[in-house]
Design a protein around this nucleic acid. Structure first.
Lengths: 391, 391
DNA sequence: TGGACGGGTGAATCCATAA
DNA sequence: CTTATGGATTCACCCGTCC
C-alpha cells in the first residue's frame, strides 16, 4: 500500500483548483485536482463517487511515467524485448489506476473507459481480472473518421467504450433506461452509438490556433454517457480530464464533477472551459418518474378505497378468464385452470395462464361502459390521490 | 507442449473427412478434420494457410434463466463447450489455439477472431502478448439483435472481430482495398459493418426443426471477411468450424477450406451443408454485399448535436400546446392536458391531444424567424451526417 | 393470390425488496 | 445470508394460418 505523508497542510480549494495533498478528506467537488491520478485518487474518500469516465492514454511512450500498483516506477525500456515490456508496463499502469478508481467508487457506482484497439483489450481484460463486472461494451461510430491513407486496412471508424460495475452482482447502479428509450424513438438504446468527432467551434484551440488537446472527445458522447448512468446531483469523476469535456458536460447537466489532470496546460484550458459553462435549468434535467420507482400500491388499497367492491368480477383482456375480488384483496379464480384457487392478483394471473409469473395489474380487467379496462387504471387513480395528498 | 504420437498410420482422406492423426503432412484441402483443434493443427504443415477465421467459445458465464416479457424462455447458450472454470482456464485455452494457429499461418497470412465483450478483450490481449499484430478491430452491428428484456443495460447489438497479422511488420498480407471500395459506393470500407443475424432458411435445422448450432454466423459476414482478406485459390482455415459457415462460403467463393470440428453432430451437418454448395462461376460478379443504414433518427440526436438546445420550447402548429425540450431528449408538457408529464416526442404529442398515437416529428414545431416550423425539418441535417456514416 | 395477424426467436453475463 | 414475492420488462424479422 501507498504511504500517505502526514505533514502536508490541508489547503482550501482556491479558485476552483484543489491541491492533491493531505489525507483522505472530503471530495473537492467541482474542481480540478492537479497531479498524478493514482496519487490523487488515493487521497479522496472511499466510496464517494457515482460515475467515473476515463479516457486513459494509450500511447506507450509514457513508459517513463508509468507506475506499478505498489507505486514503484517502471523502468524505461529500450531493449529487444521492448514490446513485451511495453505491454507489461501499460498493464501495470492500467491496473494501478483501475484499483484506485474502484476504491473511490460507491458500491452502486459504475465506470466507463474509452479506448481503441491499441489499448482497449488490455483494459477490458484487466477489468475482468480485477473483478469489475462488464455491463456493456459500446461502440462509438464516427460519422467523420480519419480515412486510411495507405489503403492497407479498413477505415478505423469507431472507438470502444466499456461500461462496468464495481463488482459482479452489483445492484442499484443507475441506468436511465426509460429516458434513453423515450429519446430514441421509443426503442431501446443500443450498444452502437453514432456521433461526429469533436471539431469546429467545440474543439479547443490555443492562441496560435492549434488544438489544445490531441484527443478531445465530443460533448455529445459524454452527454450520452452521463445521462445514461447518473442522476442530477451525482458526482462524476474523470481521472484523465484532459481538455475537460467530462467536467464541462457534467456541469452543464447538473452533476458535480471531480477532474484529475497532471498537465498544467490541459488543466488550465479545462478550467477556463468549465468556468464558461452555464448549467441547464433544473426543469430540463429533473428525472422523469419511472414505473419502477413509483410507490407501491397494494391491490388491497383499491378495495379499501371503494374503487373496487368485494365480489366484483375481473377478467382477462378477452373476458375468457374470470376471478372474484375478495374482501381481503385476494382473488378467487372462477374458471379453469385453477378454479377455486385463491391468491394475489399476480399469482392468480399466473395460475390462470399456466405460467410462472404475471403482472396482475395489466392482466386483470374490469368491465366499464367503455369496455374492459385494466385494473392498472384504478391504481393510477390511487397514485394521483396520494400525490395530491402529499402536496 | 503436446506430444504428437508417432505410431498412427497415415490415412487418406475418405469422402471428404480427414482423420486427425499422424505427423505433419499435406493440408487436407476442402475437408473437415474431426477432433480437437490444437491437436489437429499441430499435425498440419507449418506456414501453409492464407487466412484463419476463428469463432471460439465466448465463455458467456450465464447465471440463471432469462425470460421474455411474455414469459417465454430464452434458449440460452448453455453448452458444455462454452463453460470454463476461470479466466485463467479460458486464457490457457486461447493461448494454446492461437499458438497452434500461428504455426500453420503463412508469413503473409492473417487471422480473424470474432467474440463478444465476454471474451474478446482476453483474445485481443493474448494476441498482443503473443506478438500478433492487430490490423483492425471490426464491429459487426446487428440489424436485429435480441433486445434487453429487463431494461437494465443497453441492447447488446454488436459483436467484435479482430483482424491480425502473424507478427509486427508483416508485409504482403492480402487486403482487397480496391474491390471493397468499389463495392462500397466508392468510399473506403469502414470498421463498422451492418448485417442481420443468421435466421430463416439460412439457419440450419435438424429433423425436429431445432437449430443445429446455437451460434451459427451469417454467410454475409463470412463473405465480407473472405473477400476482404483472401484471393481465389487461397486456403481458409477455421479451427472451430461449427455449422460450417466459413467452409461453405469459402467454397462458394472459390477458396480452399480446412475446417476443424470436435463435435460430430456439428461436423456432419457442416459436411452436408458444404456438399450442397455450388462454387460461383465468375468471381468478378461478386461484390462485397453492403447494407444500407436504417434511416431512423432519434430525437435526441438533434439535442446531442446542438441543433436543439435543452430548454427550448416546442409548440403544436397553432402554438396552443407547449412542451420543453429536456437534456435527455424527452419532452416535458407545459400545458394541460398532461401538464408536467414527460415522454418521447411521440408520447408527449399523443398525451397533449388525448389520443393514442402521434407522430411527434410533424406535431411539434419550433419558432423561427420565418414562423413555426416542424421539428422534422431539423432531421435533414442529421440525415446528411448519417449518410456519410452509412455503409 | 394477398394481406392481416399471431406465434416464435436470436452468443444474454437482464430485478428489487422485504422478511 | 436465503427465500419469497411483487410486478416490471422486448425488437426485428421470419413463417404459417386464416380470411
Amino acid at each position: 500500500m501507498k504511504v500517505v505523508r502526514n505533514g502536508e497542510a490541508q489547503r482550501a480549494p482556491r479558485s476552483g483548483i484543489a491541491r492533491s495533498a493531505g489525507l483522505p478528506s472530503q471530495l473537492p467537488l467541482d474542481s480540478i485536482i492537479r497531479g498524478d491520478c493514482v496519487a490523487a485518487l488515493s487521497r479522496l474518500p472511499a466510496a464517494s463517487v457515482d460515475l467515473v469516465f476515463a479516457d486513459p492514454p494509450y500511447n506507450l511512450q509514457l513508459q517513463g511515467e508509468l507506475k506499478r500498483p505498489d507505486d514503484s516506477r517502471v523502468d524505461a525500456v529500450d531493449d529487444a524485448w521492448d514490446k513485451f515490456d511495453s505491454f507489461e508496463a501499460y498493464d501495470a499502469f492500467t491496473r494501478a489506476w483501475l484499483l484506485a478508481v474502484r476504491r473511490v467508487l460507491k458500491p452502486t457506482g459504475t465506470l466507463w473507459v474509452i479506448g481503441s484497439y491499441h489499448n482497449i483489450f488490455r483494459v477490458g481484460s484487466l477489468l475482468q481480472d480485477l473483478d469489475f463486472w462488464i455491463l456493456n461494451d459500446i461502440v462509438w461510430r464516427k460519422t467523420n473518421p480519419m480515412p486510411n491513407f495507405r489503403g492497407r486496412r479498413f477505415t478505423n471508424a469507431h472507438e470502444t467504450l466499456i461500461w462496468a460495475a464495481r463488482e459482479p452482482g452489483a445492484k442499484g447502479y443507475t441506468f436511465n433506461y426509460e429516458a434513453l428509450k423515450a429519446a430514441n424513438e421509443d426503442v431501446q438504446m443500443r450498444s452502437d452509438w453514432l456521433f461526429p468527432i469533436c471539431s469546429g467551434h467545440e474543439r479547443l484551440k490555443d492562441e496560435t490556433g492549434h488544438k489544445v488537446h490531441p484527443t478531445q472527445k465530443p460533448e455529445a458522447l459524454l452527454a450520452r454517457v452521463i445521462l445514461s448512468a447518473s442522476k442530477p446531483g451525482d458526482v462524476v469523476l474523470d481521472p484523465f480530464l484532459g481538455s475537460g469535456t467530462t467536467a464541462a458536460v457534467a456541469k452543464r447537466l447538473g452533476r458535480h464533477f471531480v477532474g484529475i489532470e497532471r498537465d498544467s496546460t490541459y488543466a488550465d484550458a479545462a478550467q477556463a472551459r468549465i468556468d464558461a459553462v452555464e448549467p441547464l435549468p433544473d426543469l430540463a434535467l429533473v428525472p422523469a418518474p419511472t414505473a419502477r420507482e413509483a410507490p407501491r400500491i397494494a391491490f388491497n388499497a383499491l378495495v379499501e378505497r371503494g374503487l373496487l367492491a368485494p365480489g366484483t368480477l375481473l377478467t382477462d383482456a378477452k373476458a375468457k378468464v374470470r376471478a372474484l375480488v375478495r374482501a381481503d384483496g385476494t382473488l378467487s379464480l372462477e374458471t379453469a385452470p385453477g378454479l377455486g384457487q385463491i391468491g394475489s392478483i399476480h399469482r392468480a394471473g399466473a395460475i390462470a395462464q399456466g405460467i410462472e409469473a404475471c403482472n396482475g395489474w395489466t392482466y386483470w380487467h374490469i368491465a366499464t361502459r367503455e369496455g374492459l379496462r385494466p385494473i392498472d387504471s384504478l391504481r393510477a387513480v390511487v397514485r394521483s390521490e396520494m400525490a395530491m395528498a402529499a402536496e
